[in-house]
Design a protein around this nucleic acid. Structure first.
Lengths: 142, 142
DNA sequence: GATACCGGTGAGATTCTTTCTCATATACGA
DNA sequence: TCGTATATGAGAAAGAATCTCACCGGTATC
């Protein structure tokens, strides 16, 4: 029930917000750019402006409903916050994104920040590589 | 002798390239945006266009002379490659950047990539926080 | 039930960073 | 020194994200 999420976040339940939230929840690809969301909404017959998509996503981010990532490339991507922190590994050839967590790394990060005199607020750990999927264009046919 | 570096990188020794390289080597702040470099060149009386700064930095990056980072904020920053890989911790209040390395993290990253079926090409690990310097605007006077 | 209010929206303009275009200037081997 | 390929500078252009502002739709008020 997405409308609950919106109300909980202190946001009015409006059609664009609902549609965007639905799309984020149902999309196979968990990491979507604002443009991609906009396009899919148009294809779905919705009359939602790009400005609204950006606005809503920014509100969602502020409300903690989504996370914004800046992977390689120009546009930011958004993913639904699902309560489990994770980092990302991105295929440079096909754009595929996998998620992972590593407690050892998390602990080391905290220790490093403390040692250097920082109060850590956030972190970005992104690995870039080539994946081994058959349909990845970067893959040499074996 | 910067001109050696340029020749080694297969780049013609031109005035803009020399000046930009010198600036990167002598700057107190190791992480400079293209704009910042451009401004400092102008202040130094050089007649170098912004387009040239971007072009040269991109060439330097391709030649492995500099690294490009996308920290929080809109502009990329560039730093001279000094042969020692390191990650970054950035103060969200004052923009200060510190560098660190952690072999444990590096090893874990490799293991994770392998486990997920990726050949790792690069990685970005950036910690964001508040530093404890006296002159940091984010600091509460103690 | 009519009306005033207020946040939300869409379209386009705007900003900002970065890249591109192209005429001119420069480096460097012959 | 000359010739040619390459580099440069200025401005135009592209691309992402934000801002402006008139309009629209609920909601509250009477």
């Amino acid at each position: 029930m997405e409308s609950q999420d919106l109300k909980k976040a202190g946001l009015k339940v409006t059609l664009p917000r609902m549609k965007i939230l639905e799309l984020l929840e149902s999309s196979e690809d968990r990491h979507l750019s604002a443009e991609a969301i906009y396009r899919q909404l148009l294809e779905g017959g919705e009359e939602i402006g790009l400005a609204t998509v950006y606005r809503v996503l920014t509100q969602f981010e502020a409300a903690g409903l989504v996370n914004r990532h800046h992977f390689e490339g120009n546009q930011a991507v958004f993913e639904l916050e699902r309560g489990r922190h994770h980092d990302h590994i991105v295929c440079l050839s096909c754009g595929r994104v996998d998620e992972f967590t590593d407690n050892v790394i998390e602990e080391r990060q905290k220790a490093i920040a403390e040692r250097l005199g920082y109060t850590i607020k956030d972190h970005a750990l992104i690995l870039y590589g080539e994946c081994n999927r058959d349909d990845c264009p970067g893959r040499q046919k074996a």
